[in-house]
Design a protein around this nucleic acid. Structure first.
Lengths: 189, 189
DNA sequence: TCTCACATGTAACTAGTTACATGATTGC
DNA sequence: GCAATCATGTAACTAGTTACATGTGAGA
């Protein structure tokens, strides 16, 4: 579809959230920070202009919602065209263009310049950081597992998709934790 | 050091390579594409301005080198100050600011919208892509292992640092490959 | 002659972050 | 009155990519 050219990944991130429930720009930004922030972050100043773009493209619409206890908000809702756009994108070709930048690996690439104690401390710190995240994610998964019977799980449910992203996070952090430990073993030997 | 504020990670990427050997802007860009490109990419149009910046900061110097068979080049060399800057950076605090954007995980987060066959094909393709990379990296490591005796390895050698980055790449690609397989198992079940 | 690798740069554009700017309502 | 949360946006800046622009020398 031609649309793909006009869309940036941030647009699909917004649509991904709106496909689950209507949200205000504020809530969208909050979820982009907290819910999906570990794998796809965007600030609120990025969200508002993007919502305008999406609305112009007919992929979302908004309505003003007056609230008694809080300021009036704009509630954004995905349109059928928007839903179709996500559907096409989600299994469409993934640009293998990896302007990938991993500073941690870059540091490993230059670790030969460091002093042993500094190098050990660095990878020790990194191991702790990633082990903490790992532990946190695993706790969330354990929580889900204990409340969500395996039989009730279907891959085409939004909750499973969230679970799959969490699973990816766990594997990613575990891999990092183990590599940091490996680095220390190599340096310490 | 105050210098850290003036430096961007791309600057350290350049210095990381120059700490190993003097290079021209062209060679620098080539290595940034081929050698460290898998974990830290930058195009040549980014390298040249960065070299100017680094030279102004006194972290690199250059000399013209006339070649008979090829166009004259500028050979860049790291200065003692530059080497010291890398040394400080390499084990210094790593900004945990992760404006991390992983489109693959974002897609998993919206996979519930897809059709089963499209979802299976998508993660099958991704698994193939990452398994290919994994195989390629493992072949390189096997090559190194067969020529480089374990006793001769020291963590403070540039070659070990390259090996460590490769190890990280292998673990990263393996993790991704396995997760893609897991996704297919979940969808197919 | 033409293409490829080597070699260096700038310009224009796109993307993204941080800072700026404003305002309502609630609870302390 | 003041801080915090909810709420929406713009402006200025930083970073990064793609396209533009030029030129040498080797080999087919």
């Amino acid at each position: 579809m031609l649309l793909r050219r006009l869309m940036r990944t941030i647009g699909f991130a917004v649509l991904s959230l709106l496909a689950r429930e209507p949200l205000s720009g504020y809530d969208l930004a909050s979820q982009l920070r907290e819910r999906v922030g570990t794998f796809f972050y965007a600030g609120h100043s990025h969200v508002y202009p993007e919502l305008s773009r999406l609305e112009k493209a007919g992929l979302v619409v908004h309505e003003r919602v007056e609230q008694r206890d809080r300021p009036t908000k704009k509630l954004f809702r995905i349109t059928p065209a928007g839903r179709e756009a996500v559907r096409e994108w989600v299994t469409g070709p993934l640009d293998p263009a990896l302007p990938f930048r991993d500073e941690l690996t870059l540091r490993a690439f230059s670790i030969w310049l460091a002093e042993r104690t500094a190098a050990l401390a660095f990878f020790g710190d990194q191991e702790r950081v990633h082990r903490e995240r790992l532990t946190r994610y695993e706790a969330i998964r354990a929580q889900i597992d204990s409340h969500w019977p395996t039989e009730g799980r279907r891959w085409d449910m939004p909750d499973f998709a969230s679970y799959a992203a969490l699973e990816r996070g766990i594997r990613y952090e575990r891999e990092l934790t183990e590599w940091c430990a490996w680095m220390q073993a190599q340096i310490g030997a």
